[in-house]
Design a binder for these strands. Structure first.
Ligand code: SF4
Ligand code: SF4
Lengths: 138, 138
DNA sequence: ATATCAAAGACTCTTATTGTCTTTAATTAA
DNA sequence: TTAATTAAAGACAATAAGAGTCTTTGATAT
């Protein structure tokens, strides 16, 4: 029970993109290099982020990726949901009783966490995170 | 990214045990029947619950399982942790920078959820849940 | 037309979950 | 003390999900 590595990569990639100069684009090659990650694999992650309207892509020469919205409009939750999907942490696959109380407790707790992650903006950690992640990627 | 079925089974089993008359024991056979689940598989789950000191077991004839502590001392979180372990929802397997801000945000949100689950007692839903789960297990 | 880039899909590899089966050990009842 | 009963442990198989690679297609700029 753990968020996938893809989510981790996505968060880092978004930080990279947020730290990019306004209106600049960057290709998957460069993005992948910073994370020591295969470009084709990262490409899949980027496609998910694109479909979630967090970033936008332009193919062809001088193309690449850039943010699709203001940086103060990008939360941790947005990125996580783009990768992990809409699925719930708890999903009863058994009988699906109407008005299940177990599910309600679990869903409420989960909603709480997601709410908190919705309020956390990536841009708020992007500056300091840059010192870390930009620093010793060996 | 979903809590395992085992966690679901464990929650249901704990509800069953909470609804049991005081100081009565019940064997894995009966517990499994109510959930239409293989006894040997449920047995593994029960062993985890036992190791987490949520229930206690006695082998041999007239043995079985019963609560190991007061029912107001058993939270959702206790059961979940017994099955899922201590692992975190977010665990950076990459560089493990000191004082990572991404991890901090994720861990704080997770802690929030777990705190809420710690406050939710199984006994508080056991009565109504019994009507559901005891009812139409077909 | 050509070089450059993202998107899509088929495919493999690895890991975790789910589940079964068999053996061992502890307890009670006869 | 023997037999019946029950949990614990561990080996094993089946399935599903995640991680990752490779190749093809399609869009864009020069
Ligand atoms: S009580 Fe809730 S969790 Fe349990 S089987 Fe019914 S719907 Fe599922
Ligand atoms: S910044 Fe945090 S999440 Fe990113 S690689 Fe470092 S420790 Fe891991």
């Amino acid at each position: 029970m753990k968020y996938s590595n893809a989510t981790n990569y996505a968060l880092h990639t978004m930080v990279q993109l947020i730290r990019l100069p306004r209106d600049a684009s960057i290709g998957v090659q460069e993005l992948a290099k910073a994370q020591q990650l295969s470009p084709t694999y990262l490409s899949k992650i980027l496609t998910k982020l694109t479909k979630a309207n967090l970033i936008e892509s332009t193919p062809g020469a001088k193309g690449g990726y850039r943010l699709a919205r203001g940086e103060r409009d990008i939360s941790f939750f947005d990125v996580i949901q783009a990768i992990e999907g809409e699925s719930h942490l708890f999903d009863c696959t058994l009988h699906r009783h109407e008005g299940c109380l177990i599910e309600k407790v679990m869903r409420d707790a989960e909603a709480n966490m997601k709410q908190e992650l919705q309020e956390q903006l990536l841009v708020d950690i992007a500056e300091q995170a840059g010192q870390q992640q930009g620093g010793d990627v060996k």
